[in-house]
Every structure is written in structure tokens, then in C-alpha cells.
Write a protein that binds this DNA or RNA. Structure first.
Lengths: 346, 346
DNA sequence: ATTAGCACTCAAAACTAACGAGTGCTAACA
DNA sequence: TGTTAGCACTCGTTAGTTTTGAGTGCTAAT
């Protein structure tokens, strides 16, 4: 396919930027005034005609201005991302905005809220992927009624509780022993590494009241493993009402629904999971978004880390004409902040 | 004020029910067909004219049918609530719909979701009011880096974690001692009862490494007490799109926003907190709702219990023409289910 | 007390006209 | 050859007009 000469590109960018601000199709006369080089509307029209033929822009109807196509945005975004050589964003220290919180989930939710009010788009954020983080320690406590409280603490000070029923109460020495056993064998492992193998080895190790131990171990292993469904938090959903192109017909309803249901968003998180490196930014434009009700949106995601290994994603959800530049910068800044916070938390 | 004779009341009810179904102003001819007694539209018109004068119904404009006023709904609802002699709703056991969960909050959120899809309205639910529940036990665990994990377990198997920083690590004997101290003194108390008095008594009791103890005690007390902001969960927000009268203009946006922000909903929860008894149902109609953006809505709340004392609220949020009958019944059924669940959990 | 009859009202729907932003094309121009 | 002025044309938007019909209030008859 023919490359775009510089002038065409400039015009395309002008269209994108104008449409971004106004949300209205932009015409030749507007661009003529907008560009630095002096060109008559007629000339612009010719160029636009070419751009349309090449598939970068379209007319919603005859006698309207042009708006960018997905392909147009794609070009724009790719250029931007490749030219982006870490512009050393001033990283304004907004960390004071984040109230000191003890649970990672709350911190992430605050992050989402902050991002939403910063960008005026909707945001999503997944909890950390628990499975790949290492266990720090496990703490069993008796609750009476044959129930045990299992507190699991993992790297990054992730804390999870589970209550398990084992049918009978255990003596406090028993609990002490179990705690020791669990921590000796499991701490330092990731959840992925807690295989049946490890469990049965532990069972063997403590031969005495084997039956009871087995029950407890199974329950503990089960309840640790079940943690795999990563929670997804969203914020700023009402921001979509700022963009008429997202609220026509039942669109608003559908969008808000998917944001509330959250499950469909998992598709976005999982998509491109393999190729994501530290702080990698991914941009989904229109039809590229793997969620049916979000085909009119663009989504920009970034991967955050917390200690070792891939951990979670943050996503910004807005109209296709979102301010990609600003969103990407904001996201990168946020990533660095999260790094700092997790560092001192860790 | 003059009482309503039976015929007027019947007509009012007919209007309410018709408007509930259609969302359109209802006219004399419709009611004439709807009523069991045979009356001509003209007669109905006369009665409606009276009803309007009395303030129970209004015309949105001349030459339109009538719609109920807040006052009209109020009458209807009050009658319904007073005539309600616990109709022994069949209490269909839907408890199998509730997946076994270990954290109360998750159970409540599931409840909210279930209610929303049952009723087609939006729902809200507050977490249990932690302050008035009794502590079962407290468990401190060392996390390294001068941090302690505090796990607080209260009645009803409510579990809360806090991570506190005390600047220095503590020996495991120290931890053991502290755990003993805390549990001996605090378990059985409610959070309200953990006064400075109790704390200083504890400080006195353990005179040895008093300094460190003080730090820990303060941190623990602080982090327990800070739990007071009750979380509010919502579900089914997109349901409001089913009711045009809630989505005109920016209304949809505002409503969705308040539902996402959640703080304003606290007003509803707190309003009438004093007069709420076990399973008490409260109905807010239109202007009675203490939230600005919800003046076009009605809210029905119920109080659920979990062990002793008032505990939390569930609310159904819908248009003023909601099906109060069904909502109240559903809510009562839900309350009994929660009772059962908490009973076996407790 | 009820009702048939009828004139009246007014929002919503359907139709029409005017407008104007924007285009594509052609012809003139540097 | 690339640029531009000029102009006819398109078509969505807006404003104004008419029609329709659901519903009322009033009056007079039952």
C-alpha cells in the first residue's frame, strides 16, 4: 500500500485532533485554517478525497465533513507509540493523593478512581494475579464450631482470608503444629507451585493424626487455589455520558451494563496477555476491542507489576476519539507511581 | 382532610396500577374498562377531577390522562403496609442460588445482584455495621519490616485485616504475649466498647516492655476503630434504563453517578436509622428520598440482622411507579433467607 | 347520581420549506 | 503540474405548519 506523504499525514492528524475536540465531522475549511502551511480548502478537499480512498477517513454522509476510521486511528497511534522515547514525563508526585491503605485492592480501586477523574474516561483495573506471587506465610486460627480461619499472606502484603469447615475442633497444640507444618513447606512457593505432590509430601511428613491433617491440608490447598478468578474493578463509568457517540440508542445502557458485570472485561485483560512486558502499553481501537458492546470504544491497557512476574492490568476506556497521547502518558505516570508505592509496601 | 370513599380509592388504585404497567398517563376510558363495577368514563372523569383537587393525582398537561402524585403513592403504600399481615409468602428456597462464600461481603454482593435481577430495579446493600458486633478474637502475626498483620474476627464470622507499622520487629514470644493480652481483654466486647479506658487498663496490665506494647495497642485500636465507614454495594444500576422517566435529560447520568459514588446513598441508610426494627420496611417516595439526584425515584429499604443488634440495610431503587407490592414481598423473603444463612454461618 | 354528547385543548406525529455546511468538479492560474 | 476560485449539488438539520387523536370539562338528558 502506498505510503502517506507528509502533507496527507498532517491533514490526517489535523482531522483526528479536531474530531477529538469537537466530536463533529471536520471539513476542508476548518483544516485550512487549522494547518500551519497555507492551503486552500479546495486543495485540502483533494487530499481528503485521497485519504478517504485509502481508507483513513470517511464521510458519515455526503455533504458532511470527514471522521477518522479505525485504520486512521491505528496509524496515528502506532506513530505515536513508536516515536515515544520515554519523554521523561515530569512524574508529578501525586502519591499524596493516595491515602495510605493497607489492602492492595483498596489501593487499586483508588487508583482507578483517580485515573477516571484525571482522564474523564472510564477505567478498569484487575486485582493482582495471585497465582504467581509467592506466599509469605499462612496462619490458621480456630474459630469454634469446627471451623478454621485461614489467613494467607503473599508477597506485596496481599492478604486473603478463608474460612474452612473441617467438622471438628482442633487443640491449640494441633493448630500450632499445623501452622508450623504449613509454613515450613509452603512459604516461598507460588500458588502455581502448590501441587498435589507438595501436599501429599506434607501429609506423609506428619504421620500422627493423619486423618485430621489431611482434611485440613486439603481444605487449605483448595481455598488457596480457588483464588484464581481475578477481580476486576471499574470506575468512572458515568464518564461515557460525556461522549454522545457512546450514548446513542441503547448504547449507554449496554456499555454501563458491561462495566457493571465486569466479566466481559476479562476478555480485554486476557487478550494479549502473552506479549505483555513490564509497563507495556496496548491499544485496542474500535473493532479491535474483544467485547461486543465496546466496538465503539477504544481501550488502552497497561500492565503493572508488584514484585516479580506479571501482575495485573489497568485499562482506560473511552470513545475512539479519545486523547491517546494524554491517556498513554497518564498511564505511564501511574505505572511509575505504582512501582514506587509497591516498592515501599513490598 | 376528607377521607376517600371506597369508589375514589378504587379509581386511585386503578390509576396507580395502570400507570405502573404502562408508564403512560391513564385516562377515564381506560379505567372504565379496567374496573370491575361498570361505570361510564364520564363518571370516572368526575371522580378523577375530585381526586386531582385532593392532590392524589395530576395531569402532566391538559388533555392527558392522570398520573399519581407522591401523595397518591403514599396513601397506596401506607394502606398496603398496614394491611400486610405477613401473608406467609411461600418462601421459595432460593438459597441454592447463593454460592457458598466465606466472606460476608461477598454474600451480600451476591444478594444485591440477585435482587436486582429479580426485581429489575437497582439495589444497594450496606455491609454489616461492624461497630456493634462483638469481637471473637484478634490475631497478630509478624510480617517483617516492622509490620504486623492484625486479623480481627467478629461475630458472624466477619473477618477484617489490617497491616500496621510499628517500626521494629517483635520476638515471637512477644507476639504470643500480645495476642494473649489482646484476646483476654477485648474478645466479647463490641468495637464501641473499646474505649481509651480499656486500652489504658491493658497498657497498665503489661508493664514490662510497655513502650512497644503501647505502640501496638494504639495501632490495633486505631485500625479497629477506623472500620466505621460502612461499605455500600450496589447492583443492577443499568436497570434504570428500563424506565424512561428516569433517563430523560441528564437524569440517567446523574443517577448512575450517585450509584457509582455510593456515598450519597449513605443518606438513605442513615435516614430513619433510629426507628428501624428487625426486618422493618421503609419506603421513600420521590421527594422523600434524601438524595437530590433521586427525587424521581422511590427507595424501599429493609434492615437485616446478623446476630444481635441492628446490622445493615438493603435497598431497592426504582421509579416512583415501581411495583411496591412485589418489592416489599421480595425484600421480606430475602430477609428470611439471610436469617437462615446467617444462622448457620454464625 | 349517572351518562351521552360535544366542543375544546394540546402534545405528538407528519409534512414542508429553507438553510447551510460541505462536497466534487471544472476551469483558470502560477 | 500543482493550486485555487467558482459553482452546482447533496443532504442533514432546523423551523414552521398541519393533522391527528387521546383526553378533558361542561351541559343537558335520563
Amino acid at each position: 500500500m502506498a505510503e502517506l506523504d507528509e502533507r496527507k499525514e498532517k491533514i490526517l492528524y489535523a482531522i483526528i485532533q479536531n474530531y477529538q475536540e469537537t466530536g463533529e465531522p471536520v471539513g476542508s475549511r476548518t483544516i485550512s485554517k487549522y494547518l500551519d502551511v497555507k492551503l486552500s480548502p479546495a486543495t485540502i478537499r483533494n487530499e481528503m478525497s485521497d485519504l478517504e480512498e485509502m481508507g483513513y477517513i470517511v464521510q458519515p454522509h455526503t455533504s458532511a465533513g470527514r471522521i477518522p476510521t479505525d485504520k486512521g486511528y491505528r496509524l496515528y497511534v502506532d506513530r505515536m507509540l513508536s516515536e515515544r522515547n520515554l519523554p521523561a514525563v515530569p512524574t508529578a508526585d501525586t502519591s499524596f493523593l493516595i491515602k495510605r491503605v493497607d489492602r492492595v485492592e483498596e489501593l487499586l480501586m483508588q487508583m482507578a478512581r483517580l485515573l477516571a477523574s484525571d482522564t474523564h474516561y472510564a477505567t478498569m483495573i484487575t486485582g493482582p494475579r495471585y497465582k504467581r506471587t509467592k506466599l509469605k506465610f499462612i496462619q490458621l486460627s480456630p474459630m469454634g464450631d469446627g471451623k478454621l480461619l485461614v489467613v494467607v499472606v503473599a508477597e506485596g502484603n496481599l492478604v486473603k482470608n478463608h474460612i474452612i469447615s473441617i467438622g471438628e475442633d482442633i487443640s491449640s497444640e494441633g493448630i500450632l503444629q499445623l501452622n508450623l507444618l504449613l509454613n515450613n513447606n509452603l512459604s516461598g512457593l507460588t500458588i502455581d507451585e502448590i501441587t498435589l505432590d507438595v501436599i501429599s509430601r506434607m501429609k506423609a511428613e506428619d504421620g500422627e493424626h493423619a486423618e485430621l491433617i489431611n482434611k485440613v491440608l486439603d481444605a487449605v490447598a483448595e481455598s488457596i487455589r480457588k483464588e484464581e478468578k481475578v477481580p476486576i474493578y471499574t470506575s468512572g463509568a458515568p464518564n461515557i455520558f460525556k461522549y454522545p457517540e457512546l450514548t446513542g440508542g441503547d448504547k449507554a445502557s449496554e456499555l454501563i451494563s458491561t462495566l457493571e458485570e465486569k466479566e466481559p472485561l476479562g476478555l480485554i485483560v486476557r487478550s494479549g496477555e502473552e506479549e505483555a512486558g513490564r509497563h507495556d502499553i496496548q491499544v485496542f481501537i474500535g473493532d479491535e476491542v474483544p467485547v461486543e458492546s465496546m466496538k465503539d470504544c477504544s481501550v488502552v491497557t497497561a500492565t503493572y507489576e508488584l514484585g516479580n512476574g506479571v501482575q495485573g492490568k489497568i485499562g482506560i476506556i473511552g470513545p475512539k476519539r479519545m486523547d491517546y497521547q494524554k491517556v498513554v502518558e497518564t498511564l505511564q505516570r501511574t505505572m511509575s507511581q505504582l512501582d514506587v508505592i509497591f516498592q515501599e509496601e513490598g
